[in-house]
C-alpha cells in the first residue's frame, strides 16, 4: 500500500510553467485547460516583499470531497496508491465534483467528463515519475510515497517548514509545500 503525494519546494520554484506545458503534452490536456498551474503570491510594501510561487494541481486528498459527492461512482480513490482518479466512461458531467473541490482542480473535459491531474498514473505504473516532476528544471516538484517512512519526501518535510493548501477544508491534501 502506498499513498502517493508531492512535496513542492516554493524556494526552488521560479514559476516557469515547465510543469504545466509538459503536462499538456504528456496528458493531451484539451486546448484552453490546465491540469496543473502556477500561482504567484507577493505581499508586503515596496520594497519589502515576501513572495511565494507554487505549482498547484489536484491534491489527491485523503478525504476527497469530489469523490464523496460523485453520484455515479465515477470519481474514485485508487486502491493501493491513494490517487484520486475519474472513470471517464461513468461520468455524467453533473459537475458536483467541481463544485466540491476547494482547490478548483477539476474541469469539464470537452469530451464530456470531469478531468484533472492523475499524478500521471500511467507513467507511475511504468516506474516513471509524473511528467511535471520529471521535467521541473528546478527540481522543485518531488513525488513519491508519503507512507514510506524515511523516504526522501519525509526528509524534505522534516528539514523544512511545510504547509498544505486550505487545510481548514478538511480534505487532507497530499501535496505539500516547503516554505
Amino acid at each position: 500500500m502506498a499513498r502517493y503525494g508531492m512535496v513542492i519546494d516554493t524556494h526552488r520554484c521560479v514559476g516557469c510553467h515547465s510543469c504545466v506545458i509538459s503536462c499538456f503534452m504528456e496528458n493531451s490536456v484539451p486546448e484552453g485547460y490546465k491540469r496543473d498551474w502556477i500561482v504567484e503570491v507577493v505581499s508586503g510594501e515596496f520594497p519589502n516583499f515576501r513572495s511565494e510561487i507554487r505549482s498547484e494541481r489536484c491534491n489527491h486528498c485523503d478525504n476527497p470531497p469530489c469523490v464523496f459527492v460523485c453520484p455515479c461512482g465515477a470519481s474514485y480513490v485508487e486502491e493501493g496508491t491513494g490517487t484520486v482518479l475519474v472513470h471517464n466512461e461513468k461520468c455524467t458531467g453533473c459537475k458536483a465534483c467541481i463544485a466540491a473541490c476547494p482547490y478548483d482542480a477539476r474541469f469539464i473535459n470537452p469530451a464530456g467528463f470531469a478531468d484533472k491531474c492523475t499524478f500521471c498514473d500511467h507513467r507511475v505504473k511504468d516506474g516513471l515519475l509524473p511528467g511535471c516532476a520529471t521535467t521541473c528544471p528546478t527540481k522543485a516538484i518531488n513525488f513519491g510515497d508519503l507512507d514510506q517512512p524515511g523516504s526522501h519526501l519525509h526528509k524534505l518535510m522534516h528539514d523544512r517548514s511545510v504547509k498544505s493548501l486550505k487545510p481548514s477544508a478538511g480534505t487532507g491534501p497530499n501535496v505539500y509545500y516547503l516554505l
Binding site: 490546465k34 504567484e40 507577493v42 505581499s43 459537475k95 463544485a99 478548483d104 477539476r106 474541469f107 469539464i108
Partner: peptide, 20 residues
C-alpha cells in the same frame, strides 16, 4: 498589499465557478 497571480484560467472555473 497582497498580489495573487493565478495562471490557471480554466473555462467555467476561473475567475470563479460558472458550472451551474
Amino acid at each position: 498589499m497582497i498580489e495573487v497571480t493565478n495562471y490557471r484560467d480554466n473555462p467555467l472555473i476561473d475567475p470563479h465557478l460558472e458550472i451551474w
